[in-house]
Amino acid sequence: MEAQPPYLFVYGTLMRGFDNPFAARLRAHSAFIAEGFFSGKLYRISWYPGALYEPKGTLKVHGEIYQLLDFQKLIRELDEYEDVKEIESESLYLRRQVPVQTESGDVFLCWTYLYNQSLAEATPLPDGRFTV
């Protein structure tokens, strides 16, 4: 079995500055690498955001890259937090790999959670940054 990349990109409630048990768990079991971005669109869904990856898009989704220290254990917990289901159509988010670029130009292939439900009631965040 191929080793999973140990990098995770977060753009919402798991970032530094957010106070919740899953964000604290992520910080305790990973190493912060850098701030970064991917091509896509960001939306405010409710108290949390949702992002779409658009490889040829002109907008960016900004967030943080972490190296997970125990990928298999932590990713299962994060899948639960992000409401990932076995049946994709029922999932709030889908975990996918996307290339994330840092300001210095380095690119990391990261797991991230992309929004998987209707955006009809969502508010676009054209600057690509989620804040409370």
Rank of each mutant, 00 (worst) to 15 (best):
Y53G: 00
Y53T: 01
Y53P: 02
E54R: 01
P55A: 07
P55V: 08
K56M: 11
G57V: 10
G57M: 10
T58L: 13
T58M: 10
T58G: 08
L59A: 14
L59H: 13
K60T: 05
K60W: 09
V61W: 01
V61Y: 03
V61K: 01
H62F: 15
H62K: 09
G63L: 02
E64G: 05
I65N: 03
Y66G: 03
Y66I: 06
Q67A: 14
Q67N: 05
L69P: 01
D70K: 12
D70M: 07
D70C: 07
Q72C: 02
Q72R: 12
Q72S: 14
Q72L: 11
K73R: 13
L74I: 09
L74A: 03
L74Q: 09
I75L: 06
R76H: 11
R76C: 08
E77I: 10
E77V: 10
E77N: 04
L78Q: 04
L78E: 06
D79N: 15
E80Q: 13
E80A: 13
Y81A: 07
Y81D: 02
Y81I: 04
Y81C: 10
E82V: 06
E82G: 06
E82R: 01
E82L: 06
E82P: 03
D83C: 04
D83W: 01
D83M: 09
D83S: 09
V84G: 01
V84I: 15
K85H: 13
K85A: 08
I87V: 15
I87Y: 06
I87D: 12
E88N: 03
S89T: 11
E90D: 13
S91I: 03
S91G: 05
L92P: 04
Y93L: 01
L94R: 15
L94E: 02
R95A: 00
R96K: 15
R96Y: 00
Q97C: 04
V98W: 03
P99L: 07
P99S: 08
V100Q: 02
V100P: 02
Q101C: 10
Q101T: 14
S104R: 12
G105A: 11
V107T: 15
